[in-house]
Design a protein around this nucleic acid. Structure first.
Lengths: 189, 189
DNA sequence: GTTAACTGCGACAGAGCTGGTGCAGTTAGC
DNA sequence: GCTAACTGCACCAGCTCTGTCGCAGTTAAC
């Protein structure tokens, strides 16, 4: 079966990575795809997936945990509590976009409402709101802004930007996202 | 065995409605739900669903067609080509929100990328861009704004607003959406 | 070099979903 | 009131997916 604690051998570790990446590709295209299809995309026998992951849910969970860990690192390394708000915001946006472009399925899965990841996600929202509050204190955000709503909009903008296959440079996209978030589409004074 | 052209009897018509509404409720909660669950929610035998809809896809198609028709009516009645842009925008936003709150599954389904509804959706985008262009001419939107991107943001904002169960009044939500779309979260001059 | 871990393959059982049929009872429409 | 349409029910056939097993061959780790 799977999901044991014993350290994996190097080749097993490798096939786990391969499976996770293939699952991302396949499930992004079709969330209802079978394990058979995932195995084929990974160049692996279906039984191997079952050996490494107890069931489909365990596989998805591993994918989600993977991106959540990445997001944690990304946010931490942007120093959202000490760096200038706009700098941190830009840095985080670009990096989150990079993660989202690579792991779209796992990303949407982790953000699915009412999932087991709700608490982990709530933690992200809290940090996001905290950063926005710093931006507010710095005058970047209106004093009377609805921060949870702004945070929601921020996530949505990142999601939309990730759909834009044209501008694939994360930093360029990040600039657009933050510009839209702060100023909208209206005329500038 | 279904989707015939012969006019349905009144009771059959009624059960079709019941099934569509139940399907919306069930599939919104779980897109992978079985027809059995939908039938149960509709207070109907599963075979009845099969009698009215050739297969699962036909059922979903009917749901999507239903909302697309609603959206068409909604947009048309707001006179997007003649009414003042801001008025039309607000009117459309509020009504679309009303539709989305009632048919979240069908709505996201119809907007799924690469679906058979892509062309119908493209038509909506075109009309949306046209309306935004009028708003641009009226000075509501920056002259150098990226209209397709703005339209994308507009859709995303509507989607997010629909997740807000707190402010359930469509007009209130519409105000928030348009305000965010045009001005973002930054401080007002 | 030995051993334990890993993999592919073939096969299997079980479960769930789909789509269909026939029949008896009810109901809308004329 | 008559007829055709509609529905629920029981039942069935077929399919796909999941999860498991054993075995033979390969490979990493000591």
């Amino acid at each position: 079966m799977a999901t044991q604690e014993r350290p994996l051998r190097a080749d097993a570790e490798r096939s786990v990575r391969t499976i996770l990446e293939a699952a991302e590709r396949v499930l992004a295209a079709n969330p209802a795809a079978s394990l058979e299809q995932i195995a084929e995309a990974a160049g692996v026998a279906r039984t191997t997936i079952h050996r490494r992951f107890a069931n489909r849910q365990a596989l998805v969970d591993a994918m989600v945990r993977n991106v959540l860990d990445q997001l944690d690192v990304v946010i931490e390394s942007a120093h959202p509590d000490t760096a200038p708000p706009l700098v941190a915001l830009h840095q985080i946006t670009a990096e989150v976009l990079r993660v989202k472009l690579g792991w779209p399925f796992a990303m949407t899965e982790s953000f699915a409402p009412g999932s087991k990841w709700a608490q982990g996600q709530q933690q992200l929202v809290t940090r996001c709101v905290a950063l926005l509050a710093r931006a507010q204190a710095a005058g970047l955000v209106a004093a009377d802004a609805d921060l949870p709503w702004t945070c929601q909009v921020y996530y949505a903008l990142i999601g939309e930007a990730a759909h834009n296959t044209t501008g694939t440079d994360p930093h360029e996209l990040a600039t657009k996202v933050i510009d839209t978030l702060l100023h909208g589409a209206g005329p500038r004074p």
